[in-house]
Amino acid sequence: MNYVRDLRALIGHAPVNWVGVCALVLNTENEVLLQRRTDTGGWGTPGGIAELGEPLPETLRRELWEEASITPLNPEFLTVISGPQTYQKLPNGDEFYQVVAVYVVREWHGVPVPDGEEGSELRFFRLDHLPVSLGPVDGEVLRLLRGR
């Protein structure tokens, strides 16, 4: 079962609320891990949509494993981002608003490797040298992180 695919088969490209997670993975130099997204070509934080009934901490673990081959240790809940500023329309026509639980991850097992499906590249960026092609939620959470 694929929650997103199955729901889209029923409703097409119509706007929906997606509930999910965003991971601010920081290395020892306080640089943040970003992935180059295959759907938009832009950069974004690892994370994604919760499967039906899935607890958000489990979504965080699953998404980090799927997208970066890492397992978070002691993630710290930071905030929830939601509202009209989270609206996105993907190149394929899918529209959505996001309700995102944001976690800071300072420790993990594994070596970050892109999955090649959702992300084509993973790279750590200094917080004062971030790419400009960030989505609305990514931009907001990275501003919050810089302010901490």
Rank of each mutant, 00 (worst) to 15 (best):
G44P: 03
L24R: 14
C22L: 11
D94W: 10
G53S: 14
E51W: 10
L34Q: 09
I81M: 10
V100S: 13
Q35G: 14
I81R: 11
W108I: 05
T59S: 12
E29D: 15
S82M: 11
G48W: 03
E117A: 09
L33F: 03
L33W: 03
F77W: 13
E63I: 03
P112W: 02
G116V: 03
R61K: 09
S133T: 15
E66K: 08
D39S: 11
T59Y: 06
P75W: 00
Y87W: 12
S120P: 00
Q35S: 12
E67Y: 01
N92R: 09
D115K: 04
E29M: 12
R123V: 12
L34D: 08
Y103E: 03
E63H: 11
V102H: 10
V32F: 02
V19H: 10
R62E: 05
Y103H: 05
L33S: 05
E63V: 05
G110D: 03
D94T: 14
S82E: 15
L26F: 04
G83T: 06
P75A: 01
Q88E: 15
P57H: 10
R37A: 14
R62A: 03
R61L: 01
A68C: 08
L73N: 08
P84D: 15
V25W: 06
K89G: 02
F124G: 05
P72F: 00
R106S: 06
F96P: 08
Y87I: 02
G135H: 07
P131L: 14
N30C: 08
D39P: 04
G47H: 03
L26M: 13
V100W: 05
L122Y: 03
Q88F: 07
G119T: 01
L60R: 02
D128I: 07
V19R: 11
D94P: 06
E76Q: 10
P72Q: 01
G48N: 04
E58C: 03
F125G: 05
L56P: 10
D115Q: 05
N92H: 09
G53W: 08
G48V: 10
R126V: 00
N27I: 04
E66F: 02
A23C: 02
G110S: 10
P112S: 06
E29R: 15
R123P: 02
H129F: 06
V132D: 13
D94V: 15
G44T: 12
L130C: 09
A68Q: 06
Q85A: 15
P112E: 00
Y97G: 06
R126Y: 00
P72L: 00
L64Y: 00
S133A: 15
P131V: 15
R37H: 12
L56A: 08
A23W: 00
F124C: 07
G110P: 01
L73Y: 01
D39A: 11
G42M: 11
I81V: 15
E117S: 08
Q98W: 04
